[in-house]
């Protein structure tokens, strides 16, 4: 008898495999990015089944809500030429295949034993008032504080590097000072001149010359 949990799990698993495959096979890069969004969603569903609601919602919030939006932003603006991208596919296939095989091997050696050991075990169910978030926060800031801080420093370095790479100083800076803009008074910009609305025109001198 397959329980509802298993049905939902296989549904999400099939969906994420399908979406992940379409990410690399879709011809249109925008479609590929949208399939990646679908893959994130189905993975979030699987995490939700594991009662990891904090991780599941954060995955949607960070990856789908922010990272993929920027991805789409870039992919839509670039004119990606697929034919040129696919040109050297078979030439580089052996290298790519080797890297892929290495990664699979690595994953199996790292996760394999543990994954096999826990398949039969039941994951402990928690009461409704159990807060996943609190527990995770406690672990991050006590037991795993050094790896966590290290990850934060790596991210900070990446942020600084990205800004340093893209920052260009213009020769003529077009900087605006909003407080200055706000302080502007009418008299700084507009000069009111009093002019008579009508003027007496002297007898046409030009007309006389033309004759």
């Amino acid at each position: 008898m397959i329980g509802l949990d298993s049905v939902v799990f296989f549904l999400f698993a099939a969906l994420s495999i399908f979406a992940a495959l379409r990410v690399i096979t879709a011809r249109n890069p925008v479609h590929a990015a949208l399939f990646l969004v679908l893959a994130f969603f189905s993975m979030a569903g699987i995490w939700m089944l594991l009662e990891a609601e904090f991780l599941a919602i954060t995955l949607v919030l960070v990856y789908v809500g922010a990272v993929m939006v920027l991805f789409l932003f870039v992919v839509m603006m670039l004119d990606v030429n697929l034919e040129r991208l696919r040109e050297g596919f078979w030439r580089w296939f052996p290298v790519g295949g080797l890297v892929a095989a290495l990664m699979v091997f690595e994953m199996i050696t790292v996760l394999g034993d543990r994954a096999v050991a826990t398949t039969g075990a039941q994951i402990a169910k928690h009461a409704a008032d159990y807060s996943n978030t609190k527990e995770l926060g406690r672990l991050i800031y006590t037991d795993y504080v050094y790896p966590f801080e290290l990850a934060a420093v790596v991210l900070l370095v990446a942020i600084v590097a990205a800004i340093a790479l893209t920052l260009r100083h213009r020769r003529v800076p077009k900087k605006q000072d909003p407080s200055k803009q706000v302080r502007v008074k009418r008299n700084d910009r507009v000069r009111l001149i009093s002019m008579p609305s009508s003027k007496k025109v002297s007898a046409q001198p030009d007309a006389a010359k033309a004759d």
Binding site: E53, I57, T58, G65, V69, M76, N132, T133
Partner: peptide, 21 residues
């Protein structure tokens, strides 16, 4: 839901997809 506030943040950030697409 216990993570209601996170869920709200996640959902409000998804609205942009309709507009971009």
């Amino acid at each position: 839901a216990n993570a209601g506030l996170l869920y709200i943040l996640a959902m409000t950030s998804l609205g942009v997809y309709g507009i971009i697409i």
